[in-house]
Simulated scan of single mutants.
Amino acid sequence: MGAGTRMLARLALAGALLGAAVASAAPVAVTVTNHTRPTRCAEEDNVTFTLSAPGIEQFRVEALQPAYIGAIRDNHFAPDFSGCDFSGRGNAADPHYTFTPRHKVLYQGRRTRIVGITLPSFWRPARVPVRVAGRADTGFHLIQIFRKTHGHFVESMVLYPADGYWRIKPLPAPGLRDSGYGSSFLVGPIENEGRPVVDIASIDITPAPLSVVLNFVQGGRAVATLEKIDTTRTALRFTLLPGSSGRRPFAMLRSMYVAPHNADVSEVRWRDGTNSAGRAEPLPAVTTLYATDVRFGRSVPSRHNTSAPDMRFSDFQKDR
């Protein structure tokens, strides 16, 4: 066992021990703040929700099938630029750094495949070292993780090392060959460089059981462990080492909302620990809330990314 593999095993063990230490504690509430701005462009991440609280050391992030998943007949994935104008801001205004394209299988197992992709251009110059099953590489813009289902591999999550974004989704629901991504999220020390980012110094991935260690440029790390992946949900448990300071968000949801029928997120459902029934509001009506469990989702089918999952953040834990 190499030094890198031993270190990864120790970090995963630290996360597991911390989980055991706080698992019996009651979930705590965090501050969820809506920074969304209006847009008519379905390809613009205009939705931003921050999650903040001091001392958070563990929480769960889930991708859940939308309530209407069984009624989908037309599963729309195609981009929609009909209401877009990127002049002076947004994706078209981003810097473009050039790279030599690559597509490399970093791990191939019976049920899991991990692929690294370097794009011809990207908006940030960072080349983040990545270690997968003890093998080192660098410079990937996407780390794709596939899970085998019904005889073929389906992408279930992707991590962007150069800016820290995650996207996850459940395995396809019965009757669908695949499902779309929708919202993305960030975990760690979030900075603003024209858009929110997390600067990652290095990444260590253990394929089976799946765990991902993010070592941050500013210090500290996050350990993500796969709790569940099936046709109803994909669930990751995050352990922050050290816990959140409370001076900045420890997590952020990024998404798109034009109208209820054209959105990756159109409503927010949450519990605050005092009302077991929970509450729900349309996304534009939400400002700041305190939640032990918050779900960003849709009840009305969207004409864009129709099968994209709802995103839920829950089980926030502190070291008491």
Rank of each mutant, 00 (worst) to 15 (best):
F59Q: 00
F59A: 03
R60H: 12
R60V: 15
V61P: 00
V61K: 00
V61C: 01
E62L: 13
E62P: 10
A63R: 10
A63N: 02
A63K: 09
L64T: 09
L64Y: 04
Q65Y: 02
P66M: 05
P66T: 11
Y68I: 05
Y68V: 05
G70P: 05
G70I: 02
A71C: 07
I72M: 11
R73E: 11
N75M: 14
D80E: 00
F81V: 01
G83N: 02
D85L: 07
S87K: 06
S87A: 10
G88F: 08
R89P: 06
N91S: 13
N91C: 09
A92N: 09
A92L: 08
A92M: 10
A92F: 03
A92G: 12
A93S: 07
P95H: 02
H96K: 14
Y97K: 03
T98S: 13
T100Q: 14
P101K: 11
H103I: 13
K104Q: 15
Y107R: 08
G109F: 08
R110T: 13
R110S: 15
R111C: 02
T112P: 09
R113A: 11
R113D: 08
V115R: 05
V115I: 10
G116S: 08
G116H: 04
L119R: 14
L119C: 06
P120C: 02
P120K: 06
P120H: 08
W123L: 08
W123I: 06
W123Y: 13
W123T: 01
R124I: 04
P125N: 05
P125Q: 03
V130H: 03
V130D: 00
R131S: 10
V132Y: 03
A133K: 01
A133I: 01
A133M: 01
G134T: 00
A136D: 14
A136P: 11
D137V: 15
T138A: 10
T138D: 04
F140Y: 14
H141M: 08
H141N: 11
L142P: 02
I143A: 04
I143C: 09
Q144C: 03
Q144Y: 07
I145D: 01
F146S: 10
